[in-house]
């Protein structure tokens, strides 16, 4: 990763400066009739500024502190699922993107719809560029849902269709969603997708749909689930074998992690200090997307080491 200062604003890895305070409303023009209305607008703008600025005023917790295991009541510690993506290992082959689409019956929107921004990618490959040709530096960032501990999407859902489950997964109940798209707007990572059309499966695709993941109808929002159906399966397998689920069971559990040929994606329990994920979270390379928003994502990126320097 090159220096942060030169990074464009859209680069989500760069710890961009806190949102600039909204500009002061313009001075009222001489026309006294419009003064009242402008005053109201100014009051509204001040309110909006306070709304935006308040979360920023909260002190940012250190990464290590965030990852400290939180003892659950009753002695049994529930897992808190998270993911680490090593950007140094990622070659942007998009294996994770394809694996995710296949595993989760994610509909293929088609070229026209995708160009209109209606494609659905639970796992997407974000591309950032720095500098100008020929001194151009590109960066590819695999972006699943961040499963924020303080998820803005959960707060805005008017019908409780999305919630943070007991294991930290930001779940989406398709059957309960009314398609208002507040959550797609609220998500600062744009990791939520609206079904603009009913899925149009080809005859071949129809036969290869994953029976463990429900297909979604037109008019609901969908998102990455951390492959929770695989977690459930792993848990049932472990129980059948009379043992507890281990880190080795979940290390490559989600489809994206399993498909990654470079082993860049690590899944695991952030509440387990011994898990590989918890170890990676302590790395000095560990960053999270747009940490300044206070969303506390559970997807941790290991940024490129500065090999050149």
């Amino acid at each position: 990763m090159a220096s942060d200062e030169s990074a464009p604003r859209s680069n989500p890895v760069s710890p961009a400066p806190a949102r600039s305070a909204p500009t002061q409303p313009e001075a009222p023009p001489p026309n006294p009739e419009r003064r009242g209305a402008l005053r109201q607008i100014a009051a509204l703008a001040a309110g909006a500024a306070a709304f935006v600025a308040l979360p920023l005023l909260r002190p940012r917790r250190a990464l290590a502190q965030e990852d400290a295991p939180s003892p659950a009541p009753g002695g049994t510690r529930k897992p808190r699922w998270g993911m680490a993506i090593d950007l140094d290992r990622c070659t942007a082959c998009q294996g994770c993107v394809v694996a995710c689409k296949t595993e989760n019956n994610v509909p293929i929107a088609g070229a026209d719809q995708t160009e209109r921004g209606r494609g659905i990618f639970w796992m997407d490959m974000l591309q950032t560029e720095e500098g100008e040709y020929p001194d151009l530096k590109g960066q590819f960032i695999p972006t699943p849902c961040n499963h924020c501990d303080n998820a803005p999407c959960v707060k805005v859902c008017p019908v409780g269709a999305t919630y943070i489950n007991e294991e930290g997964i930001v779940a989406q109940m398709w059957a309960r969603c009314i398609g208002c798209r507040f959550c797609t707007t609220a998500c600062p990572y744009t990791r939520r997708y609206f079904n603009w059309q009913a899925p149009d499966w080809s005859e071949a695709a129809r036969h290869t749909l994953n029976p463990n993941v429900a297909t979604r109808p037109k008019g609901v929002v969908e998102k990455c689930t951390f492959c929770h159906h695989r977690i459930r399966q792993a848990r049932e397998t472990a129980r059948a074998e009379g043992r507890a689920m281990t880190d080795a069971d979940v290390r490559r559990l989600p489809a994206c992690a399993q498909a990654c040929p470079a082993d860049a994606i690590t899944f695991g329990d952030l509440n387990d200090p011994e898990s590989e994920l918890s170890q990676l979270a302590k790395s000095p390379r560990a960053v999270r997307l747009q940490e300044e928003l206070g969303t506390h994502p559970k997807v941790i990126y290991l940024r490129e080491a500065k090999w050149q320097e």
Binding site: Y163, N165, A171, A214, H228, H229, R232
Partner: peptide
């Protein structure tokens, strides 16, 4: 038993 939505919904 758990009544978490994800326990039974997929």
């Amino acid at each position: 038993a758990s009544n978490d939505c994800l326990r039974c919904h997929k």
